[in-house]
Amino acid sequence: MENREFLLRRLHSLLGIIPIGIFLTQHLIVNHFATQGVEAFNNASHFMANLPFVIFLEIFVIYLPLMYHAFYGLYIAFTTKNNPGHYSYMRNILFVAQRYTGIFLVIFIAWHVFETRFQVAIGAAEANFNMMANILDNPWMLAFYIAGVLAATFHLANGLWSFLVTWGITQSEKSQRYTTYFTLLVFIVLSIIGIRALFAFI
């Protein structure tokens, strides 16, 4: 197919928002139950883990889109020649940050899934408040998770901005500038939700 690259790239952009962006938002909001206590979090976690067809939801809404986005994203990240030094414009710096946070997120999410979902799958752990409390007990792990949450919220917010450009929704300079403000707000709000949840476990 002649326009294979075009379709792959558009798919990459779409999957970043739907479903991955929506999943991330939902994930952070569910985690936020931790601020209401152990029981509230465990109930929410139990509800999510026992959704009907949960394995298929996970495969088609999370694993496959996320893996495609991650691997194609790595290809994109490693085929650029970053130049924020001489061309230190705001958008170019965000462009570089999008690639660095993307690479970091591949590592962070791989570890996060291994440490939580995979351990549950092999029966070595149970997904509940205590699991996260144990993990975040280690200050290095807490720092790693804070970095992971901030990288994810930044990557989503900035990705939302470029999604709107990539699909031709925001064309004018003005609309692109206002979307920058809006996505900054998205970044701040999601970061607060995510970080509050992390600190609720300690």
Partner: peptide, 22 residues
Amino acid sequence: LNAIMGEGGLASCGNSQNCVES
């Protein structure tokens, strides 16, 4: 439009926006 939807075309833009600045 079909030509720029081919290899190395429009989709390879990563929105760094250095072009318009330069």
